[in-house]
Design a protein around this nucleic acid. Structure first.
Length: 440
RNA sequence: CGGGGAGUGGCGCAGCCUGGUAGCGCAUCUGCUUUGGGAGCAGAGGGUCGCAGGUUCGAAUCCUGUCUCCCCGACCA
């Protein structure tokens, strides 16, 4: 993308409404614009990031065997009366009436709908197990939206729902999602630690929150530094490996991690002092098993292998996709702006000419831009008639992982400057080797 | 929901107390000079002062109502 043709509004000063760093940076770098309390429009830059995150979530869900579908944002009140939650849910549910005075709602979650959709088709134990998911906008009428996109009223969420014949199967489904989550967050370049959450109905151990560490997090967290060395993507653990998944679950159970709500001083004391990590965290995912709560209430039963009717076990698994945009920024930024992990960066390379009036620079940059683009390297080329310094400041703010800087000074030696946004490290490279480096 | 604060060009703010017809910085546009980390000078454009009533010769300013947004707390992907 050539910046001169783009829609990437950047602000020098933060609007006063923004209080926390991710919100300020999102507004300044033109990721989002607020349209009402807790409701945001995603501008091109932010939308690119959102889609990157969504893409990783989708790939990892698919890999874990979950099946994607798409359910609507608007739901009928009738559906929620079946589970008894229409009256129980309270004012956080946005209720709407259509022209026929029918009661509708903007979905805050989809347990009811998925249960009905799956119930109406699944007849036999042979239809199980299944995990279905969608990535869809949700609305929760928060009393007090804040922190920008991290506590919005409308937000994009991946929610998966598992259906199993029995508790053992439900545990497998749970473990599968647990591993998928660990891999998902690791791929995004953030450290999300699974922490035991308030107990689910089957045993006390089947609910975890995934917390990203960031100084501005909302809750206090405690965890064993062991988590810092754990690599989930390279482990080679297969989703079909029941023993391996159990071992993974046991390992997580044994390695201490808790929020202030579930913190246990006695267990914490057993963690060696040098491994104790304490800080603040943002919840980006939550998984839990709720047994037959909805299947029971909504009359979902299938024929078991022995001919007897069985009420399936269910679990649900959420990832706050739009929240992650803010959470990643909270976890990865500096004084100059955002520092995107490569996997979620809106573009990989920011190409800058220091002197827009230098024909040789413009020609070289145009050539590099064409080559990078045709090599499939996502490149944002700042070809505007601006001073070099202003462009570089803008690149720092936007946080693209690599800056490729072209100017007459370097060109005289046949070089360009390649800057690593994260470390600030700069290298003078020949144009060819810079290109090779970025297309590698 | 309880408590607090704020609405004035795109962004950040002043003016309000003590009414006299709106100003500053940044941004934008034009010109000139500049150009390796947010340039300088000169000029220009852009605002029904959130909205609705009221008081007054006259309201951004005073009064009443209303809407919106933000912050602190209790709750949450």
């Amino acid at each position: 993308m050539r910046l001169s043709q783009a829609f990437l509004p950047v602000l020098k000063e933060s609007p006063t409404d923004a209080q926390i760093v991710s919100h300020k940076l999102m507004l300044r770098s033109g990721l989002v614009r607020q349209t009402a309390a807790g409701i945001y429009a995603w501008l091109p830059l932010g939308y690119r990031v959102l889609k990157k995150i969504e893409g990783i979530v989708r790939e990892e869900q698919d890999r874990a065997g979950a099946i994607e579908l798409l359910m609507p944002t608007l739901q009928s009140a009738e559906l929620w009366r079946e589970s008894g939650r229409y009256d129980a849910y309270g004012p956080e549910m946005l209720r709407i009436r259509d022209r026929h005075e029918r009661e509708m709602l903007y979905g805050p979650t989809n347990e009811e709908m998925i249960t009905v959709i799956f119930r109406d088709e699944a007849r036999s134990y042979r239809d199980l197990p299944r995990t279905l998911y969608h990535i869809q906008w949700k609305f929760r009428d928060e009393v007090r939206p804040r922190f920008g996109v991290m506590r919005g009223r409308e937000f994009l969420m991946k929610d998966a729902y598992s259906f199993d014949l029995d508790e053992a199967g439900a545990r497998q489904s749970y473990y599968t999602q647990l591993l998928a989550y660990l891999r998902t967050f690791q791929r995004m370049g953030i450290r999300a630690v699974p922490m035991k959450a308030a107990s689910g109905p089957i045993g006390g151990d089947l609910s975890h929150e995934f917390i990203v560490l960031a100084p501005t997090g909302e809750s206090e967290v405690f965890y064993d530094a062991e988590y810092e060395g754990m690599d989930w993507t390279q482990s080679g653990l297969s989703y079909g490996d029941a023993v391996g998944l159990q071992a993974l679950f046991d390992r997580i159970g044994q390695t201490y991690a808790a929020t202030d709500e579930t913190h246990e001083e006695t267990r914490w004391a057993e963690v060696p002092g040098e491994r104790q990590r304490q800080g603040r965290g943002i919840e980006v995912g939550h998984i839990f098993n709720f047994g037959t709560k909805y299947s029971e209430a909504m009359g979902f039963r299938v024929s078991g292998p022995d001919g007897a009717m069985v009420t399936p076990q269910m679990g649900s698994y959420g990832i706050g996709v739009s929240r992650l945009v803010g959470a990643i920024i909270e976890a990865s930024h500096d004084e100059a702006g955002i520092v995107w992990p490569e996997a979620v960066a809106p573009w990989r390379v920011g190409l800058v000419t220091m002197r827009g009036d230098d024909a040789a620079s413009v020609a070289a940059a145009g050539d590099l831009y064409d080559k990078l683009t045709s090599a499939g390297v996502e490149t944002l080329y700042d070809d505007r008639d601006e001073r070099g310094g202003a462009k570089l400041a803008g690149m720092d703010l936007m946080g693209l992982p690599w800056q490729l800087i072209i100017g007459p000074r370097g060109l005289a030696q046949g070089t360009a400057e390649l800057k690593d946004r994260r470390t600030g490290e700069k290298q003078e490279l020949s144009l060819e080797s810079a290109l090779a480096r970025l297309t590698a």
